[in-house]
């Protein structure tokens, strides 16, 4: 069989299955993004404005999760949260059978925590780069703390944090491949299944690599445009102009 046949759509080829897997991969990354961004922002706020205990907690959170392999975090969440849920479920209803934590939810939780740990550092750096006088000006105008954040700080934070967050997004896309290890039917796992059926490992894993590569290049391009848009009206250094 010709390699095009292997990748064709329909019953003979694996094109549609791989595309489905790519859909799951993208869905996983997109579902993780809001969790990671918001949790990261909350951790950064704790690290900057919290009390002593809150700051220590935020530091421990980001240091630990950045020091662990993503695969290990994924397994801890998958088995740990799964066991916890089962214990809770049995306590509530002793006759109940075993429930399985969906790999998708485990993936969102684990990758979301990792993303939060990394993004909290990016948010913190951006927040510190803001001129403190702006907050004081907001306070002098009688704005509430939340309004100051929403109207004055957040728009600038987004611009300052965008390059760092963009890198993290690309990393997130690549990390989603790990979730195939706990049997999520993403692009990686679909290729595994296709390899099992066709015995063409090089072809399928090459196609998988190319698919990830393409998505990453596309994201890089889009992020570049977003950055340029976010920085419109900013005075740049000589090199950037």
């Amino acid at each position: 069989m010709d390699w095009l046949t292997y990748l064709s759509f329909g019953d003979a080829g694996w094109g549609d299955e791989l595309l489905q897997g790519l859909g799951v991969t993208l869905a996983l990354a997109l579902a993780t993004l809001p969790l990671g961004l918001l949790l990261g922002l909350a951790v950064a706020a704790l690290a900057l404005f919290g009390g002593r205990a809150a700051r220590a907690l935020a530091l421990a959170f980001s240091t630990t999760l950045r020091g662990l392999p993503e695969l290990l975090t994924l397994f801890i969440i998958y088995h740990g949260v799964g066991m916890g849920l089962n214990a809770l479920w049995r306590w509530y209803n002793p006759a109940a059978g075993h429930i399985e934590l969906s790999p998708f939810i485990a993936g969102v939780l684990a990758l979301g925590l990792v993303f939060a740990a990394y993004s909290s550092e990016v948010w913190r750096g951006a927040w510190q780069a803001l001129d403190g006088g702006q907050r004081e000006a907001g306070e002098a105008m009688g704005l509430r703390r939340l309004t100051i954040f929403r109207v004055i700080e957040l728009p600038q934070l987004l611009r300052l944090a965008l390059p760092g967050l963009g890198n993290l997004w690309i990393n997130l896309l690549k990390d989603t491949a790990l979730v195939s290890v706990i049997a999520l039917s993403d692009l990686m796992r679909m290729a595994n299944i296709a390899v099992g059926a066709t015995k063409k490992p090089f072809l399928f894993f090459l196609v998988v690599c190319l698919a990830y590569w393409l998505v990453c290049l596309l994201c890089e391009y889009l992020l570049g445009r977003m950055e340029r848009r976010a920085n419109r009206g900013q005075r740049m250094g000589g090199a950037a102009a």
Binding site: A177, F202, W213, L217
Partner: peptide, 22 residues
Amino acid sequence: SFFRGTPLLAQLFLVYYGSGQF
């Protein structure tokens, strides 16, 4: 660009399982 734009797991599978095809 290729090695930075693809997951390490996929690269590992490409080398380890992919070589089986040849």
